[in-house]
Design a protein around this nucleic acid. Sequence first.
DNA 1: CGATTTTACATGCGATTGCATGTAAATGGG
DNA 2: CCCATTTACATGCAATCGCATGTAAAATCG
Lengths: 142, 142
Amino acid sequence: MSNHTQTWIALARAHTHLLTGVEAGLKAAGLPPLAWYDVLWELEQSPDPMRPKDLEPRLLLPQYGLSRLLSRIEAAGLISRQPDPADGRGHLLSLTPDGRATRAAMWPVYDAALRAGFDGLADPQLARLTRLLSQIGPADKV
Amino acid sequence: MSNHTQTWIALARAHTHLLTGVEAGLKAAGLPPLAWYDVLWELEQSPDPMRPKDLEPRLLLPQYGLSRLLSRIEAAGLISRQPDPADGRGHLLSLTPDGRATRAAMWPVYDAALRAGFDGLADPQLARLTRLLSQIGPADKV
DNA sequence: CGATTTTACATGCGATTGCATGTAAATGGG
DNA sequence: CCCATTTACATGCAATCGCATGTAAAATCG
């Protein structure tokens, strides 16, 4: 088995392990799934209102997936969608107070699950891992 | 942002990038999705016939997910399910010739997509990555 | 041995996803 | 300015997933 394959398998296993832990933690706490966090976080971070199109490349979701994810989050009252005055096709997204509160409530659960999942890796190892992983995929303009 | 979080984000991105590439490659070649490969491979590797229960921990799938995955693969004629003579609850899984051929056809596509996805990482880096990733998750009795 | 519990696997049902396509607004060419 | 094209987002439909539950056959226990 080639090196690529071994690395891929290890990566997939690690990913599943961490993801399962996080989702289980959030569910146990009665909080929304992880995907919601990413949306809420991006909106909270951004200095000016974002449109779905801006969110899409950052979340690595297909367009239709994001569209429906936003619908669900909106239905839960955590974000609002308003028409973009500057572009009739677009929508401007904004956090509601509930959305802000929910993101804040999710964070400690999320963080704890990650720490538990990374059990056994010390800080310098995590740093090395991050550097290696960052070389995979398209280079990232932040 | 803590180290854990940065590592997790890098890991999730790398995973999505690689997985997307592999699935796209398989689909473009008219082949089944990646999950099928893992099943076919395990069955081909195992010296004696496996049961779903044996497969489950190796594939990291929930029980019902595996049950239905096997149903689909069976419906496509790539595996067969027979009652286990030694345990009336269990089924024995075996590859059909078509299953063996399909796995063989999938492999070069799978491998090529992985190589493309890991673009930029040299062998020693891949090896270091594998070692680090292997420390995540439950220790593995192979 | 009979009753209870556990194990192995399947399945109904609602929620989510992928794919293709639809709709409406902007953009570009002549 | 008009028409064709592109962009931004939504949606119908079938496939798949998660969850809870069902079924049947071991295994356990008194």
